[in-house]
Design a protein around this nucleic acid. Structure first.
Lengths: 210, 210
DNA sequence: CCATCATGGATAGCTTCACTATCCATGATG
DNA sequence: CATCATGGATAGTGAAGCTATCCATGATGG
């Protein structure tokens, strides 16, 4: 275990905590007070740290994700993990606002064959965001919805391409999870850079210090 | 203040807390122990709640953002707020990995005229994500980088279009902030839906329950 | 063979964050 | 004039994510 700690840079007490929380499977027991950890434990620990630190997931969310990875053994619906076990921000809204938001979403979802299921994290997150736009008096931001939906389709294609061709189901699922969680962060950061560049282009702002 | 609380659904104690933390300006004083709050306070409070609950920002990040909104009075570089005062996840990496990541990024940044400044949040977040991909043995996910960069450009154009034409600088800046923060959430949720649809298309999976 | 030391397991403590509750002096209000 | 809400300060709460301590056991070295 000391080695596992050294290899991963995670404190021993923290590793024990992760085991208690079910983020990390127990080592292979070699005696009542001895256990061996192999490369798969190192890999899992790295995954956990990446999801926590880079992906910003909570410990509970990481537990859900790794549980899903472990018990998922059919190839079908690999991205379902990402769909339903990954948390997205949501907030409660009143019925009128909700109905309005669902109507906006139904339009973009229908022409793309998306399944807009009420109660699922992505749908609820979308409702939250749209209602916030409206509530804040920035309904103008809704104009981006259709274009965002277009790029979302392109992103999803890229995501599937990136995991297509992997052999083991486990590898596909893990890759899909990493790609989904860290992909959100990746995209947000790229968007910032692109915004900066676009802003500069558009305003031809010589004085920009950023 | 009771009215402000009722109107916004935020507890009085919480409003006081936000004032202490500088998220909300004090009311216009009408006496030593009386203050008046107007519509701008209601609006600001809604903004704060949206950034906290839907956007997932910390109280400290929201303070930075509203400070930026308030003291920003030139039109130039409005999206700079989003660029530099918004937090993105980052993690420390060793020099070798960092150099490798920067090289990958330099390629995509250069052909798009993006400014890849070391030390800035977007750049550091990108380095973190790329290093995680590599560290986790999912370097294959790097193939998405170029396509993600393309869509980031398109998103940025949509973002600028959505705030173009607003008259007051304050409105532009606030809209840009809201659009950036909630836009991240919006995009992540749309991506999930698109992934589900793409996954279904590609695997023609009749048994999918999701 | 015996002293030492790391290990696994359990439990309690720590720090930060985002609130929440209490107290108090003041002054508005019926 | 009695009451009650307000603004301000301070302390307390609960969750989250570690971190530290303790203990019995058994591996390890001289």
């Amino acid at each position: 275990m000391a080695e596992l700690s050294r290899e991963s840079g995670v404190a021993i007490a923290t590793i024990k905590y992760y085991q208690r929380e079910g983020l990390l499977p127990p080592g292979e027991r070699t005696g009542p007070n001895q256990a061996r950890y192999d490369q798969s434990h190192v890999q899992r620990l790295k995954l956990v740290r990446a999801l926590l630190e880079v992906g910003g997931l909570s410990v509970a969310a990481v537990r859900d994700v790794v549980d899903e990875i472990d018990e998922r053994n059919s190839t079908h619906n690999v991205l379902g993990v990402a769909q339903y076990s990954l948390p997205l921000r949501q907030v409660e809204v009143d019925d009128e606002a909700r109905a309005w938001a669902m109507k906006q979403l139904a339009v973009v979802a229908e022409e793309r064959d998306w399944r807009l299921l009420p109660g699922t994290p992505p749908t609820e997150a979308l409702v939250s965001v749209l209602c916030s736009f409206r509530e804040l008096g920035h309904a103008r931001l809704l104009t981006v919805l259709d274009r965002y939906a277009d790029v979302a389709d392109r992103i999803a294609e890229a995501d599937l391409d990136s995991v297509a061709g992997l052999d083991s189901t486990e590898a596909i699922v893990e890759s899909a999870v990493v790609g989904t969680v860290l992909g959100d962060v990746l995209l947000a950061a790229l968007r910032r850079l692109a915004q900066g560049a676009a802003s500069r282009r558009r305003f031809a702002d010589k004085t920009a210090t950023s």
